Computed example of a mutant assay.
Amino acid sequence: MDIPERPYGENRIYVSEHLDRLRFIKRAQALGFSLSEVESLLSLSASNCAEAEQLANRKLILVNEKLADLSRIQSVLERAVAGCRSTQPYEGCPIIESLIDPKA
């Protein structure tokens, strides 16, 4: 889709197709698709569901991996915070110790 020409000293006039395209791009980005992936999705026709499904499945795998990573991070932080509450001031800080020694 071409960008409409801009008459000298005036604003471009966009049509509804431009707005639809922008909404598509923003919705895809909100789902975590990169601009490169959005470009791939835009190049597909509405009847080419198999390629769109492949792109979405790859994105879903990445999202699940990120969720697993975040869950591990959450567990470590919860243990560190709980350990911090149960220590005396002279015993050291479990949060700092866990950052120094990952086995702590």
Rank of each mutant, 00 (worst) to 15 (best):
I73Y: 11
I73E: 13
I73N: 10
I73Q: 11
Q74T: 14
Q74S: 15
Q74A: 14
V76E: 02
V76K: 02
V76L: 06
V76T: 05
L77D: 02
L77N: 00
L77G: 03
L77Y: 06
L77T: 02
E78N: 10
E78Y: 05
E78S: 11
R79T: 07
R79E: 15
R79F: 14
R79A: 13
V81Q: 12
V81S: 13
V81N: 10
A82N: 09
A82D: 12
A82P: 06
A82V: 09
G83K: 01
G83C: 05
C84V: 04
C84H: 09
R85S: 14
R85K: 13
R85N: 12
R85C: 10
R85I: 11
R85T: 14
R85D: 15
S86R: 01
T87H: 14
T87V: 14
T87R: 03
Q88H: 12
Q88T: 13
Q88E: 15
P89Q: 01
P89S: 11
P89W: 09
E91P: 03
E91H: 02
E91S: 09
G92S: 11
G92P: 05
G92F: 08
G92Q: 11
C93V: 03
C93P: 05
I95Q: 00
I95L: 02
I95V: 13
I95H: 03
I96C: 04
I96N: 01
I96Q: 01
E97N: 09
E97C: 02
E97M: 06
L99M: 11
L99E: 14
L99C: 10
I100Y: 01
I100S: 01
I100T: 05
D101W: 06
D101Q: 02
P102S: 09
P102H: 06
K103V: 08
K103L: 12
K103E: 14
